[in-house]
Write a protein that binds this DNA or RNA. Sequence first.
DNA 1: GGCCACTATGACAACGTTGTCCCCCAGCGG
DNA 2: CCGCTGGGGGACAACGTTGTCATAGTGGCC
Lengths: 347, 347
Amino acid sequence: MTTLSPSGPAAGQRKVRRATMNDVARLAGVSIKTVSRVVNDEPGVHPSTAERVLAAIDQLGFRRNLSARNLRRGSSTGTIGLVLEDVGNPFYSGVTRAVEEIARLRGRQVISGSSDEDPGRERELALEFCSRRVDGLLIVPAGLQHSYLVPEMRAGTPVVFLDRPAGDVVADTVLVDNIGGTVEAVTHLAAHGHRRIAFLGDAPDIFTANERLRGYREGCVRAGIGYHEELVAMGPHDESTVVTTLQRLQSMRDPATAIVAGNNRITVHILRALAGVAEKPALVGFDDFELADLLSPPVTVIAHDASALGKAATDLLFARLDGDNSPPRRVVLPVRLVPRGSGEVHA
Amino acid sequence: MTTLSPSGPAAGQRKVRRATMNDVARLAGVSIKTVSRVVNDEPGVHPSTAERVLAAIDQLGFRRNLSARNLRRGSSTGTIGLVLEDVGNPFYSGVTRAVEEIARLRGRQVISGSSDEDPGRERELALEFCSRRVDGLLIVPAGLQHSYLVPEMRAGTPVVFLDRPAGDVVADTVLVDNIGGTVEAVTHLAAHGHRRIAFLGDAPDIFTANERLRGYREGCVRAGIGYHEELVAMGPHDESTVVTTLQRLQSMRDPATAIVAGNNRITVHILRALAGVAEKPALVGFDDFELADLLSPPVTVIAHDASALGKAATDLLFARLDGDNSPPRRVVLPVRLVPRGSGEVHA
DNA sequence: GGCCACTATGACAACGTTGTCCCCCAGCGG
DNA sequence: CCGCTGGGGGACAACGTTGTCATAGTGGCC
């Protein structure tokens, strides 16, 4: 068993220069090109030579320098850039997982970053990835301007937007059926007798928030219960704004008996705010979340699969990398209402 | 508003060569070195010249090629490699988020990948990152052999292991107090009168699972209730193995009245298995999780902060990058029992 | 025995950038 | 008018790798 202790051979000298193919070549008594051939499994190297080279590689701890390789080869860096809103959000970490999975099957490494809904940060991340010459870019847009990506798109770097559309470029986009989902949520609640249905959504400049609001409105109209401004509260929301909003909704002349929550974070805030309350309003949340089925009552949600979203976007990206140059596509993934109990509560 | 449509200037030619500093130099009528100076904000360029260069950069959509830059400069690639078990697990996505945060403050990009508890995959990812010449490496070990990293450590690349220790190298490590946590869990349950306390843990070759088992055993001994083999079930666990295990524990001569769950996934499996059951055993789970407080009964847990873990590890890594070459450190982060109700249930 | 085909290997340039060193020229003092 | 200074800018090599082409040796065939 090899144990590198601090008093071992590494001590004393802080930085040892990394071995290069040149060093390996010298040690093995061959030319650098032969080393390259061995490292890349190219044919035409005598087995005994290869063995000497491998021994030298092992002895020196050589690792091929991918920066140099990518520079020389010019083509693929074997990386995919992923810009999302927040890896910490389970929804996006699910997306990340799916992207990673597929990228792995296709021999690509994912580099990712969180924009935190900041358009400047999104741009910064995306451009950083471009400088690293990623083979493709997956972006959950924070902003509405994406013309900064025009040079990359011209250069043939595929870009796929997910969860939200791009602002001012025409590009592949994978969305979920936000409108259909909230329409269904409202319809479901109305079918259970609710006529005063509130909507708590995220900041309206976020595409999904706005779409879901539209769906809510359309659902209200279709259900014949009308759209009432005072039942809507758009974000940004946090623990305390949700509490005050709920108080307002309860203390109205004609109080809300049901709530549609615009995303998983808002749903959780609502659940927490209602924790002590005996008479809970009915609730349907957009986004499914773990344990929703184990709460009491279990939470009815509009479910859509994070990994399906990630997969669809990544598949599309790889199709482009494989040479598909048909016109940009817009994919809308279906959502489904999962009735669990909270949306069927009677007022 | 610039809109790049498929029939726009990009159509027809599929791949356009990316502009280089050379192209920019030619267009601006300067030498390539001057372009470099402008791009890197080096002094000694006349404002009017800089302006011409910037215009050319903009016109050509030039982005500096980081592969070439890193190759030439040799020093830092501005990246940190993160190998974890599964980004999809909220615990690790919390870690990821914290790492990303700090890396960002220090001007580094994170590249990450999931090992899925596969030592081979862990190694593959880590070596891939090494080939990309990351400035540092954060690893949640899946395997027990890490001597493959000796060359990198010799070359001065700092490596920090987190959540679990490395197998056969001495290196910085950040852990949580697994033993203390399970001791506390058992103590807590025993204090509430439980004498038949079961332990469901992950596969015993996983460091944390093993440590937690040790803590469980020690807790049993200290509480004077003895360690009983038949109350222990080590994983891997899934939905169905948990169900059968629980049945076994219930149908014993002297059934278990309380359970300690070895991690968040197991806790969730148990909760789901017990969902319909009226007489639930007491439960304390290792790892906190969102909504634990909203279940009924709310779930008592051994909490430890994913972001604290990520932060501690990343801080340590950056300290090394800043030149700290004191002997390898082992940091153990405290855990705390969060009593919420499920651990106080009486049999 | 001369020529060819083929295998194993090497020399060299090039990828895009930056560090080093050098040059040109305007301005200024003597 | 000469030499010196300093700002602005360029030529060139080098980073570590790989693609292209060349070459030495070996064995077979007419």
